[in-house]
Design a protein around this nucleic acid. Sequence first.
DNA 1: ACAACCCTAACACGGTTGTGTCAAGGTTGT
DNA 2: ACAACCTTGACACAACCGTGTTAGGGTTGT
Lengths: 122, 122
Amino acid sequence: MPLDALTINEAAETTGWSPRMLRYVERVGLVAPARTTKGYRLYGPAELQRLRTLRELLDAHELGLSDVAFAQRMRSDKALRQAVDGWFTTEPRRPSDVPAADWLRFEQEKHERLLEAAVAAA
Amino acid sequence: MPLDALTINEAAETTGWSPRMLRYVERVGLVAPARTTKGYRLYGPAELQRLRTLRELLDAHELGLSDVAFAQRMRSDKALRQAVDGWFTTEPRRPSDVPAADWLRFEQEKHERLLEAAVAAA
DNA sequence: ACAACCCTAACACGGTTGTGTCAAGGTTGT
DNA sequence: ACAACCTTGACACAACCGTGTTAGGGTTGT
């Protein structure tokens, strides 16, 4: 067994999550640890760090795991990100001299560029 | 009554939402219509548009209202946005020659600049 | 003044989230 | 071989989400 990887109960001990919740956090798509050939979960330093900061994140802003899962979905699904961003920018009295279709496409591409840069930088 | 503003039942009729849900959508912070002095809701063209596209958005990506509400919270609460963005970018093997504190601050400010631009553009 | 509308508040109810616990069975270390 | 782990699956349960319905009370238009 790798020296700097913990089993689920050990990881639970040092992160404050219960083993049950570690499995649940994995199920919802955040913090998925490596596995041994026989299926045992192995939590490395990166996973442990993510688990600790996740707890802080949730507590500090009163979020649910589903909120963070949704944020992750927005980062990985470009179409979703565009759709949501697009919804918040509907009909804010656009300049009337430019055709609507062109304006909309411009806005979409602008957001796409900006947010892709943000994600790429991550 | 303003000519191009609808009451809640009329708005429900043309948007496909139920009156109950229009009140709920307002409660969760999306699409808040104007009010008459006596408290009657008045849905203008902008609100009607947002309601129709909201329905499309939810259906197209299997979202809940709470997801969109959370997205809105992320756009309006800078600290939240930074915290969430920060979590997704924890410990991805940063360049080892730059002190951790500086690197972290640099990343935070970079995200802040990019996302502020995106929101300001909206 | 009366019907037809609007308001808020509440009860109801199936579905999801977050969490614990327990069961049945495979793996590991001594 | 045996205790001490690990796995998945299921039952349970409070809290919340999305939605309808109903009740009690104001407002508006004819």
